[in-house]
């Protein structure tokens, strides 16, 4: 079934659509890219930006929740995770008003902030599940030697959780890369992302399937590559760290 679906996709993309016989496969790409390279660039900036910012915020927090014993740490972790489950559509208008007030609508910065916010909970939770596997003795030993928490975080926790961090990064990356709804609300012109460009191609006025197919292929490249090369990380990320390989 899955092979079939993929073959269909390939067939759709490989053949020039018959009802526009003059267009060749490559030409679809060049036409489409010349129109849309800025949106592609926007998508890349937002995706990479939010991935980095998410990691900067969530790794220390995950570390803290794992190693600092304090009252309510479990509750705090649950609360952080639960914010991930809130549907973006429910937050769209309030955030829209907030960014309008800050005069940040239609900016890549706003998208990075919102995508980061939607990703932190997931990132915290999954990286915490990886930090938990660090032997506590190791941490304690360093504490006795007089290392600060910050040093432990940088020198011990991060190097020992590279796999986990990669998992988190992949998922934040994919989320931001695939996101449509928030971008629909937040972007006007300068900050439009690639999915917005694609969805504009299929609006009710005129569908040029050749271009759409080319755009779909480009949009699909990062997810496909990530899946091929980092399949193991994806499995543990999908289950929010509950399943480890």
């Amino acid at each position: 079934m899955f092979f079939g679906a993929f073959k269909n996709q390939n067939a759709m993309f490989a053949l020039p659509p018959v009802w526009i016989p003059d267009f060749t496969y490559i030409k679809n790409f060049t036409i489409m890219l010349s129109e849309s390279y800025r949106y592609l660039l926007n998508s890349i900036i937002v995706t990479i930006g939010s991935t980095i910012v998410s990691l900067v915020f969530s790794l220390p927090t995950a570390f803290g929740l794992t190693f600092f014993k304090f009252k309510g740490s479990n509750f705090l972790a649950d609360w952080i995770l639960s914010t991930r489950m809130l549907p973006p559509v429910a937050a769209a208008i309030p955030l829209f008003m907030l960014f309008k007030y800050l005069n940040l609508l239609d900016s890549l910065f706003a998208l990075i902030i919102v995508y980061t916010a939607f990703n932190i909970p997931f990132a915290v939770w999954v990286s915490a599940s990886f930090f938990k596997r660090i032997p506590y003795d190791l941490i304690e030993a360093s504490r006795i030697e007089g290392a600060s928490w910050f040093q432990i975080f940088i020198q011990i926790a991060i190097p020992l959780s590279k796999g986990g961090i990669a998992t988190v990064a992949i998922f934040v990356f994919i989320f931001s890369w695939n996101e449509l709804l928030i971008a629909l609300f937040f972007t006007v012109s300068e900050s439009r992302t690639f999915p917005i460009f694609i969805s504009a191609q299929v609006s009710q006025a005129q569908i040029i399937w050749g271009n759409v197919a080319a755009a779909t292929v480009i949009q699909s490249i990062p997810p496909i590559l990530l899946t091929i090369f980092l399949q193991k990380n994806i499995v543990s990320g999908l289950t929010l760290g509950a399943v480890k390989n």
């Binding site: 899955f2 269909n8 890369w177 695939n178 999915p195 779909t216 997810p223 994806i234 999908l238």
Partner: peptide, 19 residues
Amino acid sequence: LRTVTIMPIMLTPLCVGLV
């Protein structure tokens, strides 16, 4: 096989819808 199988989850939903 597993790589191929989990591919759909990662694909952009917009593109899945389009296909």
